[in-house]
Design a protein around this nucleic acid. Structure first.
Length: 298
DNA sequence: CACCATGTTCCTTG
DNA sequence: CCAAGGAACATGGT
């Protein structure tokens, strides 16, 4: 379930575990995840290098490393795709069937596994150049967001998935943010007025921040118990009760279920080939002039 | 068996 | 040239 918040939580867990660790061995089982580079170049760069930090940009994990032999520090870029996981385990733990890359760190190892192999762990950082502002940083200004919407007639929900407009929002949090902002996902992006854009911007920030906070407090499957040692996963820790992650969502994957706010059935539509969930009452295309929905004040 | 899935990139269409 | 739509990628879950 990797969108910005999940990646952020993962990065916070990985950073202290990886920092200072030296890579002793590199095993690439699925060369497609390191492309466009070659296995030989990948191994040559990584063996002997030392992790100096892990940070996040949009849904990407940014690993910084120092080379062992005086060469310049460099960056390794990770992306979880749809199903990727990254974690550190003991060297003795059983490797998963879909291990794509394994980095030996002495007594432990870093594992990147991905059942669908849509993810990446690569020396190619060019994807970062195409990203828009980080939604939780000051560069994501109301003016920049509004003007970014201004040129497109695309539905607002579809626009939110464009990583060049705002980086890190995915299919789940796009629906969630529009619900919080009480905006119809079908609104043409260029029809949002300044006030609506400002409201949506705040909803995006709030939804993402709350998801990060949630992920930071829920018990994680980290060096858990027994042989299944894994790093990370939202609400999936051994012994965790119920599906916490799912319980927090207001509309996503809730078609037919009652809106948590008004009780009307949540709807699901398809936009640009992706599912969108919304409440037809709380997110009308034309906001009713009712207290709490006021189209404008002042 | 059919259909769906958290993401990104590339190709085609208009 | 640009915007928008759709397929492709590969596999697992329901």
């Amino acid at each position: 379930m990797p969108e910005l918040p999940e990646v952020e939580v993962l990065v916070r867990h990985l950073a202290p575990v990886l920092s200072g660790e030296r890579i002793r061995t590199v095993e690439v089982r699925r060369p497609r995840v390191i492309r466009p580079g070659t296995v030989a170049a990948f191994e040559q760069a990584l063996v002997g290098a030392r992790f100096t930090g892990v940070s996040r940009r949009a849904k990407y994990l940014v690993f910084t490393l120092d080379a062992s032999d005086g060469r310049a520090p460099f960056t390794l870029l990770g992306h979880l795709g749809m199903t990727g996981r990254m974690y550190v385990t003991r060297r003795s733990a059983t490797l998963p069937v879909h291990a794509a890359v394994i980095l030996g760190l002495g007594p432990r190892r870093f594992v990147f596994e991905d059942a669908r192999y849509f993810g990446r762990l690569t020396l190619d950082t060019s994807a970062l150049d195409r990203l828009g502002p980080e939604p939780l940083e000051s560069s994501f200004t109301p003016a920049a967001f509004h003007s970014g919407l201004g040129r497109s007639r695309q539905a607002i929900k579809v626009r939110l998935l464009d990583q060049g407009l705002v980086a890190g929002v995915g299919n789940i949090y796009a629906s969630e943010a529009l619900f919080r902002a009480r905006l119809s996902p079908r609104l043409a992006a260029n029809r949002l007025n300044r006030e609506q854009a400002a409201r949506l911007r705040l909803a995006i920030r709030r939804v993402l921040r709350e998801a990060i906070r949630f992920g930071s407090t829920v018990p994680l499957d980290w060096e858990g118990r027994g042989d299944g040692d894994r790093l990370f996963y939202y609400g999936r820790a051994p012994g965790a009760t119920g599906d916490h992650y799912h319980e927090r969502l207001a509309v996503y994957d809730r078609a037919g279920l009652p809106c948590r706010r008004c009780g009307q059935a949540i709807r699901c539509i398809v936009q640009a080939g992706r599912s969108t969930y919304y409440c037809p009452h709380c997110q009308p295309r034309r906001p009713a002039d009712v207290q709490g929905f006021g189209p404008r004040r002042r």
